[in-house]
Write a protein that binds this DNA or RNA. Structure first.
Lengths: 231, 231
DNA sequence: AACTTATGGATTGTCGACAACATTCAGATT
DNA sequence: AATCTGAATGTTGTCGACAATCCATAAGTT
């Protein structure tokens, strides 16, 4: 039934390939996660276990377990005896995701100042970002932004916070992939980072918190249109 | 091998019983979760799929899926081809859990004040708590405390925050169950709540945030001894 | 005695088949 | 024509068996 039909929309997953020494469910989860956060599998898209199993040349068990991992990442939802699908993204959810991100970053900022953590790693990320902005390299700029915020959370030295942030950022990734990025706004956003590092270095809690909050809000306003789903 | 041995500590799970109309994995996960957060399954305790499957009279598949759910709740950890066990709780982790809780509650407080949410439901919870304190009913007091904080997060009207808080609170539940509760401290803690509601009602952001932060820190100091594991 | 190498047991990982359930659509009945 | 009935289909839920892997222990060698 999948042999030679004209491909309903080009299947976005292929065979799992040669042997890696990690459980299959992890490989499957990784592939599916990448497909979702990159927007190749759009919100609302149904995930059929048997179909995925055939496409990836594995049995249904690892597929099921992989989907469950993604479910707890908040990327997939299951309706019993009915189906599983990429979780639709409502405007409200997007709002909530960004506001939670704000809380996480504020927490990181507070810890960094309270504990007198060195901000040198952040300086480095800033430079990379400004270089990308000058070169008008959009991909590099987005990557640098992500690296900056990842570093911010990391130096806060809070494993649970880092894990929660990573999980949340998966969905932010997805949201960004589904939006049309506007260059000028992004350029502007790049300039927000150095003042944050300055405030951190000066241990100016109020200013640092205000700046990181404003920055996060900015990010969500890059293109706040509602995200189309495919149900 | 499990038939009639003198029960190393009495097996905490039995047959799954009659039919409910929810997936088996959910029933299994619910039971296991309850056993873990109540402390009947201590941190470090190994979870053997085949043993659990026999005890509960189901096959291994739902057990595996249930364990995976708990894994993403952060209650269980897996080491491939080696074993699964109740996740050990380090002192650091406990610290991190409480500090993240603090951030969540602060976020809720901010939203409640910013959006002018009615605090009437919190008043009601306060009364129940004070009654329990007066009656010296420890169980009721703990339950009322949990209800208060649950309500606090709920009226913040942020589904993602609520879900994250619930997940985190599972582990807080577990921590509390593993600690020896000291009555006087708890009594004292009960009195902390009304001022918080007062500050919320007065829309005094700084005071409300300070009070909720202090309260959360208090909770973690009820009995901050390290938690024994059983590996 | 010390070191390397099998070998066995315990546990998770993966598979294919069958059962349960819900939806949908065709057909009969009123 | 409208409505109820029921079978067919598509999907997930559950099961039992087998394979892969790791660890500890014992055997064999130097």
């Amino acid at each position: 039934m999948t042999q030679a039909d004209p491909a309903p929309a080009a299947t976005p997953l292929q065979d799992i390939g040669p042997i890696e020494n990690v459980p299959l469910r992890v490989q499957v989860a990784t592939r599916l996660r990448a497909a979702i956060v990159s927007g190749r599998l759009r919100p609302g898209e149904p995930l059929i276990e048997t179909a995925l199993a055939q496409q990836m040349n594995v049995s249904r068990a690892p597929i099921r377990e992989a989907i469950q991992i993604l479910e707890n990442d908040g990327l997939v939802e299951t309706i019993a005896y009915k189906g599983k699908r990429v979780k639709p993204l409502t405007a409200r959810e997007v709002e909530e995701i960004y506001s939670l991100r704000e809380a996480f970053e504020v927490m990181a900022v507070r810890r960094i100042i309270e504990r007198g953590t060195s901000v040198a790693p952040l300086r480095a990320q800033c430079d990379a970002m400004l270089a990308a902005a000058k070169a008008d390299d959009l991909e590099a700029l987005v990557a640098a932004d992500e690296a900056f915020h990842h570093t911010l959370i990391q130096i806060a030295d809070h494993e649970l916070l880092l894990a929660s942030w990573k999980n949340l950022y998966l969905r932010i990734h997805q949201i960004m992939a589904l939006r049309n990025r506007e260059r000028p706004k992004l350029q502007e956003v790049a300039g927000n980072h150095p003042p944050i590092v300055d405030a951190l270095e000066a241990k100016d809690m109020d200013r640092a918190v205000a700046l990181i909050s404003a920055h996060t809000r900015n990010l969500n306003e890059i293109d706040p249109e509602t995200i189309a789903t495919t149900p």
